[in-house]
């Protein structure tokens, strides 16, 4: 900046020398830390190739991409794919499946770790707390393939839950195929897998609560419910808001790695979310341009959701994500 400001009023010759100097200074600064820059090369290449090259690759959503002609020579189509997607009668169905599943899982899986964390926080027997925490964290480390496999064994025909419902309800329920049960199975699996692990972040926030607040409130005669409401919850409010902002950003992400495993031809009407649609028609079906366009819309909505919910967080007086 200063170099520029000065050079405005200087003679052209001095300007040249000064700019040479600044280039020189820059080169010297780089050379002094050359090892640091060399070290960064793998990481930088990684980000450019695997994060930014795909972003540039989004242009295939605007053209009729043919793998052999490449993205530069494939015919440009403008917004044709977007128009095509909205002209198919099924797009509302995909969007509906995505939103219903997503909001169901936000409403049911988001509060679960908060409630569990508050309950664990009330436990004063440390041994009990430690054992239950160890058990509750465990499913997080079990892969989704194993979770779904266990579900297949337990809920599938002949499985223990299958037999139990037969005995209790009187007729069997097709847990794995029935479209009416599908979303509950997905949400149930997520709750089973992630609730315990999700408590960690809230428990961490809870340890930062000043214990004097509890003591003071007890002297003032607050009972446990009042302490929970007036001290504990406000203490983790900003963490809750932050997690909610993060969660809202992925409102259109339905966890395709999970859904692909649970979807079959019987529950196709409800299991086809935008993610699964992109996977099936893109990677399996080879409609690269079309599904790229659909994926791009998803990404844009996600960014907008993060920005909006962050704004709302700011309006609520919270720090939010940024």
């Amino acid at each position: 900046m200063t170099v520029n400001a000065r050079s405005e009023t200087s003679m052209p010759v001095t300007r040249k020398i000064e700019s040479q100097n600044s280039v020189k200074r820059f080169v010297v600064a780089i050379m002094r830390n050359k090892w640091l820059y060399i070290m960064m090369i793998p990481g930088l290449v990684y980000f450019l190739v695997f994060k930014y090259l795909p972003m540039w690759g989004l242009i295939i959503g605007f053209e009729n991409y043919a793998p052999y002609t490449g993205p530069l020579k494939s015919p440009f189509q403008g917004l044709e794919w977007f128009r095509f997607f909205f002209s198919t009668p099924m797009w509302l169905n995909y969007l509906g499946n995505t939103l219903i599943l997503s909001f169901m899982s936000i409403i049911l899986t988001f509060p679960a770790p908060i409630i569990l964390a508050l309950m664990l926080n009330e436990i004063r027997n440390m041994l009990f707390k430690k054992i239950t925490q160890t058990l509750l964290y465990m499913p997080h480390f079990i892969s989704i393939v194993i979770v779904v496999s266990i579900t297949y064994v337990i809920f599938g025909a002949g499985g223990i839950i299958y037999k139990l419902t037969e005995n209790i309800v009187g007729h069997s329920i097709d847990y794995l195929g029935d479209p009416g049960v599908f979303r509950w199975m997905i949400v149930g699996q997520s709750i089973w897998k992630e609730t315990g692990w999700g408590t960690i972040i809230f428990l961490a926030a809870l340890t930062n609560v000043d214990t004097q607040l509890y003591e003071a409130s007890m002297i003032d005669g607050a009972n446990r419910a009042q302490r929970l409401w007036h001290i504990t919850l406000p203490a983790i409010r900003s963490t809750i808001v932050l997690m909610l902002v993060l969660r809202m950003g992925s409102v259109l992400d339905t966890g395709y790695e999970h859904l692909i495993l649970m979807s079959n031809s019987l529950n196709r009407t409800v299991s086809l979310t935008l993610d699964v649609f992109v996977y099936q028609n893109g990677i399996k079906g080879g409609l690269y341009s079309y599904t790229t366009a659909v994926g791009l819309m998803k990404s844009i909505v996600s960014v907008l959701m993060v920005v909006t919910s962050n704004k709302i967080a700011h309006a609520l007086g919270e720090e939010g994500l940024y």
């Binding site: 820059f26 830390n33 980000f47 795909p54 992109v278 790229t292 994926g295 791009l296």
Partner: peptide
């Protein structure tokens, strides 16, 4: 370190926006 800020921004931006499943698949 010079150029630190722009490189950090490159990293942070990639946390919020991605090319998505298909372009990533095609690249790889």
């Amino acid at each position: 370190l010079k150029m630190r800020k722009p490189i950090l921004n490159i990293v942070i931006f990639s946390m919020f926006f991605s090319g998505g499943m298909i372009p990533g698949y095609i690249v790889v």
